[in-house]
């Protein structure tokens, strides 16, 4: 493990140690704040209960990411190809982010039902924005001298896109995707809070109402783990694809 990784791990251990000690010394009631050891234990023992919920939330997030990719990529490319389109659409893009998802969640549940669709849609709203914006920025950041070269080669737009713009924008695309997958959990969980029969957000609300605080924390732990896993997955994918130094 490298130095930075070691210090990060040491810091986490220290904070968990203080938490654990404080809870034990002052005998904090479990429903108020369970000790880390108990949370970890719950996350493991209750895995058979948690896993199906985690699976549902994970599916919502993944579908949200896929939906966001299939919409954000063509949208960013279209806005890049036709600046008029960018001018026309960017107010809507910003507006879609200015409205809090919390405000939309109940409506989406009314429109799309208590099932998975409303959560996928919620995740999509959150994810597609960072992907679109960063991909568009990446495409626009292409060096004009390279553009000139391709113009003089008589390259049609889609060939230039495939050979020049797209690879050029990849680092920024991945930056957007990383942000997207790490905030995707928010969309899915909010959707589940408002109305669902399953999912980690549903589990949290249920456990919270029953003062099963360790289970609430255990669900959060799983959620965080899933977010981290997706983050790392995107990072690995990026390393695999971007093999060059620019």
């Amino acid at each position: 493990m490298n130095r930075a990784g070691f210090s990060a791990a040491a810091l986490v251990c220290l904070l968990l140690g203080i938490w654990e000690g404080a809870v034990r010394i002052w005998e904090v009631p479990v429903f108020l704040l369970p000790a880390p050891s108990q949370i970890g234990w719950t996350a493991i023992v209750k895995a058979p209960l948690i896993l199906p919920h985690a699976g549902v939330t994970g599916a919502e997030i993944c579908l949200g990411v896929l939906l966001a990719l299939t919409t954000a990529v063509p949208l960013a490319v279209a806005m890049f190809a036709k600046p008029v389109l960018e001018k026309a659409l960017s107010p809507f893009l910003v507006a879609s982010q200015a409205i809090p998802v919390f405000a939309l969640a109940p409506l989406l549940v009314i429109w799309l039902g208590y099932g998975i669709a409303s959560k996928v849609f919620m995740a999509w709203i959150i994810i597609f924005f960072p992907i679109t914006v960063s991909l568009l920025q990446g495409l626009k950041s292409c060096d004009p001298e390279y553009r000139t070269l391709f113009t003089l080669m008589g390259s049609p737009f889609f060939k230039t896109l495939a050979l020049l713009y797209w690879p050029w924008a990849l680092p920024q695309f991945f930056a957007g995707l990383r942000v997207g997958v790490s905030v995707a959990t928010i969309g899915a969980v909010i959707g589940e809070w408002v109305g669902a029969q399953q999912g980690l957000g549903f589990l949290m609300i249920q456990s919270n109402a029953r003062l099963q605080t360790p289970l609430v924390f255990a669900a959060i732990l799983w959620l965080a783990a899933m977010g981290l896993f997706l983050w790392a997955l995107v990072g690995m994918l990026e390393k695999k694809i971007i093999t060059w130094k620019s």
Partner: peptide
């Protein structure tokens, strides 16, 4: 009608030297 060479080599870092040299053929 003309070919163009710039003071920057303008090679694409994601392609091999050969793929870079073949760009004019690939694009047209």
């Amino acid at each position: 009608l003309c070919a163009y060479m710039h003071q920057k080599d303008l090679l694409l870092p994601w392609f091999s030297l050969m793929d870079n040299a073949l760009l004019p053929v690939r694009t047209r």
